[in-house]
Amino acid sequence: MDSSDQPINTSEEFCSSNEWLIVDYSAIGKDHSKHDIPCQDNRYIQRIDPQWGVAVCCDGAGSAEKSDVGSKFVAEQTANVLALTIEKEQWLTKNRLPAQEEWNSISRQALYQVFRDLESFAQVNNLELKLLACTVIAVIYSPIGLLVTHIGDGRAAYCNHEGQWTAIIIPFKGEEANMTVFITSSIWHDPDKYIESRVIDDKPFGFTLLSDGCENFAFLTHVNTSKTTNQIKIEDINLPFQGFYHPIVKHLKAIHLTLSHEAIQAEWASILESGTEKIKETIDDKTMILGLLV
């Protein structure tokens, strides 16, 4: 068994005060930096109280000139809309989460509201809507479960009481590797096809949201399953890489006891910039949010 398959934390070690330590960072991709292209990723955290909040990760379309502006607007607005939803639905005050069908409906309405707000933003700023194209992954986190919804690609996962990380969204991929849909795409006629929403009613001990720039070092995504040498049969899988998450979780939980939040954020930024050679050499922008119950 590979060491990365071994959960390094027991539920006892994960025992918590039900408060979240959340780190977030966006690093510009190596080639974007080389050619003075702005970071097109954005993220936003809206804390409602120490236990409940919203985290959003957006990846601007490479082909859209103002996607850095679009991803910033969508990240912030999605967080705002979902925070209002938590209040309106009284999920925090009643300490409950919606059932799957209810969340499907509510999350789609919320994302549609963000889309309409983006349309207004584009109009006011005299911008073509398509220039603001971006993906969106949003999670409502709480000590009793997670609500996740997304449009497009990227990855998301949660950590259970045994310290095992499991994917909670399936990225939308087109025929070509980098094709996906955006909040600005023609998707609203068929939300079942383009918007995935899930209720995780297992107590979460961690969650992560990441733009597709991070998936090559944080997830197992494509593995050659051919048993014959010199032959290729690639399987598309969606598995958070335990060997990536376990040491980072252990490290962050340890330094959390002694360092300020700013210092922990700086450590997280350093990991996402150049934690390993593979991370450092990543061509695309890299955004990752990591939440841990501490």
Binding site: N178, L220, N224, F241, G243, F244
Partner: peptide
């Protein structure tokens, strides 16, 4: 440092 403990997967690269 933490970098000495982080492992990354061997994904088959897109072409």
């Amino acid at each position: 440092s933490i970098s000495d403990f982080i492992e990354t997967p061997d994904n088959y690269e897109q072409k």
